[in-house]
């Protein structure tokens, strides 16, 4: 195995393009190092992305944010403007692992590792985040929900890297929220995760809403019907129940020791309802 730590995106892309065997990019390493040590992956080349500015910085851009794909979750939590504008994404990032894991883990790694239970992905989907991807064929923008195609698999072409996750500018009276269910309070894998992002019009009714679900299907889901169920309402009980029913209906989960199919389907509805109520309350207090 060869290790490289290029200083620019162009260098990283050309290193990957020139590699003969298998290669892996390295962000925080909290998934990759475990996979390396267990022999699950055996790359000939590892390209560390953490010496590249575009991947390790957060910039505000026309009212939105460009979050470098390798920025650590700890840094996300310390970024006041981002935490204020996107509390749901930041709370999802701050749920990952322990303090030790937070110091290293990144949004790009959480997404590209392609676990169905990745915590930040439902929140990023609800936020309508777009990935800026660079590879041998140049740069392209991909909606975050189109990156993961199956457990452990992505739509990234060989040699492509996610440079940043871009969040759109937000109208006032907008907020998001993320909730996950795990059997303990820390250090476990989501049984279900639900992210909700919404915007209110001046009269307090929801003008736009999006729902992302994790751990209830082979990939995280954008559940348009659940978002639609909230639009035009003031998140009253009937609207929340309709969103919950739409979320449950979208699930296609597995049965495992963490939860049965029936349980996951039910909890997806409950969490969506609760996350929507939190997002609504946050948006209303702006």
């Amino acid at each position: 195995m060869e290790y490289q730590s290029p200083g620019t995106v162009e260098e990283a892309v050309s290193l990957l393009a020139g590699a003969s065997g298998t290669s892996k990019v390295l962000a925080g390493g909290t998934d990759l190092l475990v996979q390396l040590r267990s022999g699950f992956v055996e790359p000939d080349l590892v390209v560390d992305l953490k010496r590249i500015d575009a991947l390790t910085s957060i910039t505000e851009d026309a009212g939105g944010f460009r979050i470098g794909a390798a920025v650590s979750c700890a840094e996300l939590g310390e970024h006041a403007a981002l935490s204020a504008a996107w509390p749901g994404i930041v709370e999802a990032a701050r749920l990952i692992g322990s303090e030790q894991i937070q110091s290293r883990s990144s949004l790009g790694g959480n997404l590209c590792n392609a676990s169905p239970a990745a915590d930040t992905v439902p929140a990023l989907i609800a936020a309508r985040a777009v990935c800026s991807v660079v590879g041998p064929g140049g740069q392209r923008d991909i909606p975050v929900e189109d990156i993961v195609t199956a457990p452990g698999e992505t739509s990234l072409q060989p040699g492509e890297i996610v440079v940043s996750l871009n969040l759109p500018a937000r109208p006032s009276r907008s907020a998001d929220a993320y909730l996950r269910f795990i059997p303990r309070t820390e250090m476990d894998i989501a049984v279900v995760g639900s992210g909700v992002s919404l915007t209110l019009s001046e009269d307090g009714t929801v003008s736009d809403a999006h729902v992302g679900l994790g751990a209830v299907a082979p990939t995280a889901l954008l559940v348009s019907e659940a978002g639609q169920a909230l639009v035009g309402t003031s998140c009253d009980d009937a609207a929340l129940d309709a969103a919950a029913a739409a979320a449950s209906a979208a699930c296609d989960p597995i049965d495992d020791k963490r939860g049965t199919v029936e349980y996951r389907v039910r909890v997806a509805g409950v969490l969506t309802k609760r996350a929507a109520a939190i997002a609504y309350q946050r948006a209303g207090s702006r």
């Binding site: 290790y3 730590s5 390295l26 925080g28 390493g29 909290t30 190092l33 475990v34 040590r37 590892v46 560390d48 953490k50 650590s72 700890a74 692992g97 322990s98 303090e99 030790q100 894991i101 110091s103 290293r104 250090m187």
Partner: peptide, 25 residues
């Protein structure tokens, strides 16, 4: 595997797992 913290070190002021970081990093 990042679960136990017995390898904890502080890297540039941040608490990290020594077992999840390459020496080269």
């Amino acid at each position: 595997t990042g679960d136990c913290g017995a390898c904890s070190v502080i890297v540039d002021g941040r608490l990290s797992c020594g077992c999840l970081m390459l020496g080269a990093e």
